[in-house]
Amino acid sequence: MIAVLASRLVQGLLVMLTVTALAFLMFRFVGDPVQTMSREDATPQEKAELRASLGLDLPVPLQYARFVARVVQGDLGISYRNQRPVARLIAERLPATMELVLAATLLALAFGIPLGVLAALRPDGVVARSVQALSLIGISTPTFVTGIALILVFAVGLKLVPSFGRGEVVALGWWSTGYLTASGLKSLVLPAITLSLFQLTLIMRLVRSEMIDVLSTDYIRFARARGLPRAYVHYRLALRNALMPVITVTGLQIGQLIAFAIVTETVFQWPGMGLLFIQAVGFSDIPVMSAYLLFVGALFVALNTLVDLVYVLVDPRLRTSLA
């Protein structure tokens, strides 16, 4: 177990080094920051001074080493756009995205798993058929269309929930949460539904096909032949086997959601990381963009490791072969 963890961490470190290199290269090839930062009438001497003060006159490998050293200390640079530390910007935006993604994932799991099971148990039933049809819509409609449609109906038309923003937030240390206020929760509804739709569909289809496979296995036949009640066989025995791959997919999907909540956040003007990134792209705010790249890389490494560890906990076959 410890050996697995250690080897995972080393692998993760290698991945992160590669990502850091990419993030570093971004500074060198995506425009010249000196051009962007200096006034239009700056003299060559002023530019050279600025270059020196940013450390851009040093040899490339040295620059990279300094970059890595800074990143390790949590110094992600200063945003060109609003001249504030990028690390702090991300810390401010992180809670918004995390809460949105958490809500979306819970929604997706809470509806995706039962619907998938239902579709597998009664493949010709009304529920299964309508769910299959709806899931096609869910998987093929772009997020911004669903988002705008939801805003039109529930925010503009019915005026049930706000159409943008995060509502009131409560600060818990550096973390700001919208889960504790009525307006925060109300604001969460539409973006969470929009973001969860694709994932919900994915989980539902996965659970359905896994469940159908599991139900035809010998051990489920054997459980039936022992006269165990149907509900027990389906929900306690078969579902556990069917959920194994759902763990992997959900884990990776959480990463996807955090990293690519951009569209949803833009539609709902949600003050999260995605919005931060989009604004940075508009301004070619390279420190923010490269920090975002690093963040996404670290996120996926962490989630993958987590998924592997959860697998070891859930699957006894892995547990003993690694013990």
């Binding site: 296995t217 010998d218 051990y219 489920i220 036949r221 054997f222 459980a223 039936r224 032949a225 022992r226 006269g227 165990l228 025995l237 556990r240 086997n241 859930v314 699957d315 006894p316 076959r317």
Partner: peptide
């Protein structure tokens, strides 16, 4: 009741037990 009054033994012992339960 199957399971109580009739017992069943299937061909492949490798697949007739659920891998996730003791």
């Amino acid at each position: 009741v199957p399971g109580r009054d009739i017992g069943a033994v299937f061909q492949d012992p490798m697949t007739s037990l659920n891998p996730l339960f003791t």
